[in-house]
Design a protein around this nucleic acid. Structure first.
Lengths: 354, 354
DNA sequence: TTGTAAGCGTTATCAG
DNA sequence: CTGATAACGCTTACAA
C-alpha cells in the first residue's frame, strides 16, 4: 500500500508546475494548456497510474458528485429495482449513489442523513420517509437538496416522485368488485407511510363507490413483511362474523404470507378466498396460484428520481416538482369470483406479462 | 443550503482556539482538554448543529472509515443478503460500506475499483471477481487491501471468505445418486467464476464416485440468470439421446428458468424430471414444486467478510486468511426418485425449514 | 500559455 | 492544558 501517487508526482515527472498538471487533467481547463505539455502530463499520469484524490477534490470544489440514497432496506425486492433505476440515470451523468439504510427506524433515518451530509453529498434521495419524519426531513432540507421518491410527505414542499397509490388502491378495489366480491378484507401496511395510507384511501373510496362501505381491516404497524402478512391474515381469520371472500394486501410480501396462512387453514385460493397484492415483485408470477397484483414501474421510477435530482442540481431554485406515476393492474390466478356469487363472471383474462 | 457550520464557527462561539475545539470533539484527544472548556465546545457544537466535514477529516487523517463493496448486482437475491451481513458487522465498528456494481463486466469492475480508490476507501471487499480479473485485482491489491468474498481466485494470495462450493456440488450429486438417478444433466454457470467452476468440479467428482461418469452439461457464459436457465434447459431438451431424469442447476434462478421450460414441455417435476438448485433464495420454498437446493449462509458470510476486513485493517500485515463455509442440502419437493428406477426409495424427508 | 499562492476544513505536532 | 502552525491533495483566481 502506501504508494499513493499525487498530482505533485505527476507534475514532476512531466516537468511542469503542479497547477499546469491540474489544468491539463481538468476537462474544463485543458484548453488553456499547450497541446504538447498537455500530452506530456497525460502520459505521466498514465504511467504513474495517477488517481485523483476525490476527498481533496470535493473539499476544494465544494461538490462531491455524490448523491445519497436513503432506503428502508436494500434487500426488499421493490427497493432493489428502484435503486437500479437510480443508479442507471445517475451514472450517466457522472454521479455516484451512496446508499444508506434505515431499517424502518426514524433514529437510523436521522443518522443516515447526518452521515451523508458529513460526506457532503450534493443531494439526497429518500424512499424511506414516514409521516413522523416530516419535521426532521424539513430541517435537513435546509442543508442539502432532498428528493422524495416512492413515499411522499404532505405539503408538497419537497420535490417528489411516486406512484399514485390512491389510483392503485382503487384498481384493486374495482377488480374485486367486478369479480363480484362484497365482503372484502384488507391487510394494511403501516398507516404512517404515504404509500399504504393512499392505498387504503383509494381502495376504500372505490369500494364505497361500488356500494361496499365496510372492510375487514387488519393493520400492521411494524412493517409490511411476509411475517406481518401471516400475522394479519391469522388475526383476520380468527374474527367473528362471516369470513371475507377476498383480501387486498398492501404489498406482495404480505399477500404471500396471507396465502400461506389461508392454505394452512384449509382455504383454497382463489376458490375460497381471493388475494390481490401490490408491487408485482419478482416471482409473483411463479407462485401457485400466481399472484394478481398492482405493478409499479419501479425501475422507471428510480430512473426518473435520478434524473429529477440531477436537474435539481443544475437549477437549484426551480419550484419543487411533483411527479406521479400510474400503477397497473396485473390479473393472474389468485383472484376469481366468489363461490357464493356465481352470477359474476370472470372478466376476460388480461395480459399475463412476464 | 449554503449555511455550512465549520469547526471554526464552533471554536469562536465557545471562545476557544480552533485546535482546542478539535481536541474537545475528538474521542482520542478530549482527555487533554479541561472539563469546563470541553463542555463549552460540546454545547457550541450542539447549538450550531455542527457536523464535521468527513472529506476534510479523511484527507487529513489518511483514513476514511469507508470500505468499498464491489458486487455484480445488488438486486440479486443472494447478494442482497450478503450485503446485509456485511453492513451489519461493519456498522458495528463504525465503518460505512460504499457499494459499487459491475453488472458482470470486467471493465466496470475496473472502474468500480478506481472509483473506490479515488475515494480512498480503507479497504475493498468484492464478490464479483472472475478468473480473468486476477491480474487487475492483484494490481489494485498493491494500492488497497482487498478481501475476496463468495468468489475466490486461484493462488490464495488474497484474504478470502467463501462457501465450499466443491462440497456443495458434491452434496447435490450425492442427493441425486441416492434417489437413484443415473442420467443426470447439469446447467452450468459461467466457468470462469470460481463458484460455478467448483460446483461443477465437486458435482462431477461425486458422480464419478457413484459410478456416473457422464453428465449432460449445458453451460452459460453470459450469467446464471433465469433467462439463461431457460435457454440452457431448452438446449438440453433438444439434444439427441435419452433425456436426463434429473438436473442440477448451478443456482436457483437457473433452476426456476429450467422448471418453467420443463413444465412448458409437458414434463412434470419431479415426476418426469427432478431439479435441484443452489443458493436457497427467498421464495425457493414457495415455488411449486418447492425447490430442493443447497443453502448458503449468506448473511453469515457477509458478516464474516466484514469482520475479516476490519481485523485486516487492524493488523495489516498478517498473512491472508482463507475461510471456508459449509453449504447445506435442503431437500424439498422438486427432487424424487426417477420413474424408471422404482427400486430407489426416497430418503426420509428432512428439515423443511423456513 | 504558465507560474504563484490562497485556501477548502481538519488533525497533529510543536511550543508555551 | 491550550495556542500557533504546518500539512493533507487539489482547484482556481490572479499575475506574469
Amino acid at each position: 500500500m502506501a504508494n499513493v501517487v499525487t498530482l505533485m508526482d505527476v507534475a514532476k515527472r512531466a516537468n511542469v508546475h503542479l497547477s499546469t498538471a491540474s489544468r491539463a487533467l481538468s476537462p474544463d481547463y485543458a484548453k488553456y494548456v499547450g497541446e504538447a505539455t498537455r500530452l506530456k502530463v497525460l502520459r505521466a499520469a498514465e504511467e504513474l497510474e495517477y488517481r485523483p484524490n476525490a476527498l481533496a477534490q470535493g473539499l476544494r470544489k465544494g461538490r462531491t458528485g455524490v448523491v445519497g440514497v436513503v432506503v428502508v432496506h436494500v434487500e426488499q425486492p421493490f427497493t432493489a429495482t428502484v435503486l437500479r433505476g437510480m443508479e442507471n440515470s445517475l451514472e450517466a451523468v457522472g454521479i455516484m449513489p451512496l446508499i444508506a439504510e434505515t431499517h424502518g427506524s426514524s433514529e437510523r433515518l436521522r443518522r443516515a442523513f447526518e452521515h451523508l451530509i458529513a460526506w457532503r453529498a450534493d443531494a439526497i434521495i429518500t424512499t424511506a420517509v414516514r409521516y413522523g419524519d416530516a419535521d426532521i426531513i424539513e430541517r435537513f432540507a435546509r442543508e442539502v437538496p432532498i428528493v422524495l421518491a416512492v413515499r411522499s410527505l404532505p405539503g408538497g414542499r419537497l420535490p417528489t416522485i411516486a406512484h399514485d397509490d390512491t389510483v392503485g388502491g382503487a384498481l384493486a378495489a374495482r377488480h374485486l368488485l367486478e369479480l363480484g366480491h362484497r365482503r372484502i378484507g384488507e391487510l394494511c401496511g403501516p398507516p404512517d407511510v404515504s404509500s399504504f395510507a393512499q392505498r387504503q384511501a383509494g381502495f376504500r373510496a372505490a369500494l364505497a363507490e361500488g356500494g361496499v362501505t365496510e372492510t375487514v381491516a387488519q393493520t400492521s404497524l411494524v412493517g409490511a413483511t411476509l411475517d406481518e402478512g401471516r400475522r394479519a391474515a391469522a388475526a383476520l381469520l380468527s374474527r367473528d362474523g362471516a369470513r371475507p371472500t377476498a383480501v387486498f394486501a398492501h404489498n406482495d410480501l404480505m399477500a404471500v404470507g396471507a396465502m400461506d396462512v389461508f392454505s394452512e387453514a384449509g382455504l383454497s385460493c382463489p376458490g375460497d378466498i381471493s388475494v390481490i397484492g401490490y408491487d408485482d415483485i419478482l416471482f409473483a408470477d411463479h407462485l401457485v396460484p400466481s399472484l394478481t397484483t398492482i405493478r409499479l414501474s419501479s425501475f422507471h421510477l428510480g430512473r426518473m428520481a435520478g434524473e429529477m435530482t440531477y436537474s435539481l442540481l443544475q437549477s437549484p431554485d426551480s419550484p419543487p416538482p411533483t411527479i406521479s406515476l400510474p400503477p397497473e393492474l396485473i390479473v393472474r390466478d389468485s383472484t376469481a369470483p366468489p363461490a357464493e356469487a356465481p352470477g359474476a363472471s370472470r372478466p376476460p383474462s388480461r395480459a399475463r406479462s412476464r
